[in-house]
Design a protein around this nucleic acid. Sequence first.
DNA 1: AGGCTCATGTAACCGGTTACATGATTAT
DNA 2: ATAATCATGTAACCGGTTACATGAGCCT
Lengths: 182, 182
Amino acid sequence: MSLSYGILGFLNYSPMTGYELAKVFKDSINFFWHAQNSHIYLELKKLEKNGLIQGETVIQIGKPNKKVFSITDKGKKVFIEWIINNSKDETAETKSAFLIKVFFSGNVSPKQSIKMLKKYKQDLLNYAKGMETIPNNIDMYSHALDSYQTLYWQFTVDYGNALIKTNIDWAERCIKKLEELL
Amino acid sequence: MSLSYGILGFLNYSPMTGYELAKVFKDSINFFWHAQNSHIYLELKKLEKNGLIQGETVIQIGKPNKKVFSITDKGKKVFIEWIINNSKDETAETKSAFLIKVFFSGNVSPKQSIKMLKKYKQDLLNYAKGMETIPNNIDMYSHALDSYQTLYWQFTVDYGNALIKTNIDWAERCIKKLEELL
DNA sequence: AGGCTCATGTAACCGGTTACATGATTAT
DNA sequence: ATAATCATGTAACCGGTTACATGAGCCT
């Protein structure tokens, strides 16, 4: 479901191919929504069938042909409605296999858990490093759009950074408590 | 996948029925993993078929019969291995339809977005209130188990609180910036 | 009489993942 | 040579959700 709205959102900025959508997903909302290219193509087909987007094949020389999709009026309407209707509890959606592991880590030694948490922390640090380029991506797109649009992009980057910091701080607190047991 | 490990985790504490599992899920890890009762029963069947748990029907008087499941040695082994093997990047799993909405909220007015974010904040506050009882739940179970086990439960509660606080702070920052535009 | 708790399940569906397949052009 | 980029898809699978079905006993 969410993927289709993400696609509509990007097509609302400008027409794109499935291939370009896959890239733009990766460059932007990848942090909170990961999209497989196979899934994107599937969803494009569905959206076209429902009349929310329409595709046009473009013949290219020296490159494979491509299919450029544009959002329809119906698609725009559906998309805007989705944004406005703050539907049921998007808040309480946290899903984390990692936290299940933590919850049950009383079954392993403190040493083992410390190792796990340190790996978690390291992954987060690496992830944060990878995210440093996102503001650049925003700049890249931003001169094509007004600053009001990009303000929201900044909000999501801010969210990402805040979340990573919270996670790291938490991991450190846990590690510290576990080290006291050694 | 994760649900089955959650089930193994609880059965590793003590044998339980599907019904009891549904309750204990709700009382504990509900914040980061929500389990439907239908799903639990399905998973129990699968786990039994794979020899990780085994069920025994208990005839009751005055109540419907029930099936109590216990973890097998094989199940214990699989469960512990799952905890220890810090598999591929559980870190970068954040999935949030809400953040997609935020990302694309340049399509609606600041007033509209403020409304959305205030609702988000309110949902979080309500959620936090609902979570206040969890430490009690932990106390309830804890005298049956050692404090080392419950330490990890505390970790997850700490995580939940930290996350909610981060989310609320972020929402407030966004709201403030949007209000400057009015 | 009505609602809650105890108790277990089936069937249909759906969003998303993994693996696989193809093939030309361009840059190193 | 070989790796990356451009470009689009199919098929099988799977974890999880929604809706539905059933029914006894207990409390108010």
